[in-house]
Computed example of a mutant assay.
Amino acid sequence: MSAPEIRWQPRDTTLLEWIAQQYGVPIALIGKAAGVRSSQTYAMVHRWKLGGRVHVERIDYGAPSSWRRSKQFDGPGVVPNGPLWVYTDRETGWGYLGFDPGEWHPKASTAAHLTAVSELRLALTGLETDPEVWTSERLLRRFVKPEGGQPNPHLHDAWFRDFTDPDKVWAIEVELTRKRGEGRLMRSMAAALDAADRHDLAGVLYFVRGESLRRALDGIAVRLAHQRGIERLLNLEIHDLDATLARKGVR
Rank of each mutant, 00 (worst) to 15 (best):
M1K: 15
I6Y: 00
R7T: 14
Q9S: 11
T14G: 05
E17C: 14
Q21P: 08
V25G: 08
V25R: 09
A28G: 01
A28C: 06
I30T: 03
K32Y: 05
A33I: 05
A34V: 13
G35Y: 12
V36W: 13
V36D: 01
R37K: 13
S38Y: 13
S38R: 15
S39K: 12
A43F: 12
A43N: 05
A43G: 09
W48R: 08
L50H: 03
H55T: 11
E57M: 01
E57T: 07
E57Y: 06
I59D: 00
D60Q: 00
G62I: 00
S65D: 11
S66N: 14
S66A: 12
R68W: 04
S70W: 02
Q72M: 09
Q72H: 14
G75E: 05
G75P: 04
P76Q: 03
P76Y: 00
G77C: 08
G82S: 02
P83C: 01
L84M: 04
Y87C: 10
D89P: 02
G93N: 04
W94M: 11
D100I: 07
W104V: 03
A112F: 07
A112G: 03
H113R: 05
H113L: 01
T115P: 02
E119Y: 03
E119G: 11
L120Y: 07
A123H: 02
A123P: 09
A123K: 01
T125F: 03
E128H: 12
D130T: 05
E137I: 05
E137M: 02
E147N: 07
G149L: 06
N152Y: 12
P153M: 00
P153R: 14
D157C: 02
D157Q: 09
D157E: 14
R161Q: 08
D165V: 09
D167G: 15
D167F: 06
A171S: 15
V174W: 00
E175V: 06
L176A: 05
T177H: 10
R178E: 13
R180W: 01
E182A: 15
R184F: 02
R184D: 13
L185T: 14
M186Y: 06
R187H: 14
S188Q: 15
S188N: 12
M189F: 08
A192W: 03
A192N: 05
L193R: 09
D194K: 15
A195E: 14
A195P: 13
A195T: 10
D200G: 12
G203A: 03
V204Y: 04
V204L: 00
Y206W: 08
F207N: 02
V208I: 10
G210N: 04
S212M: 09
R214M: 12
R214P: 06
D218C: 05
G219N: 08
R223Q: 10
A225P: 06
A225F: 08
A225M: 04
E231S: 15
R232Q: 06
R232M: 14
L233K: 03
L234Q: 15
N235H: 13
E237T: 12
E237Y: 08
D242A: 09
A243G: 14
A243E: 14
A243S: 01
T244R: 07
L245Q: 04
L245K: 05
A246L: 11
K248S: 11
R251S: 11
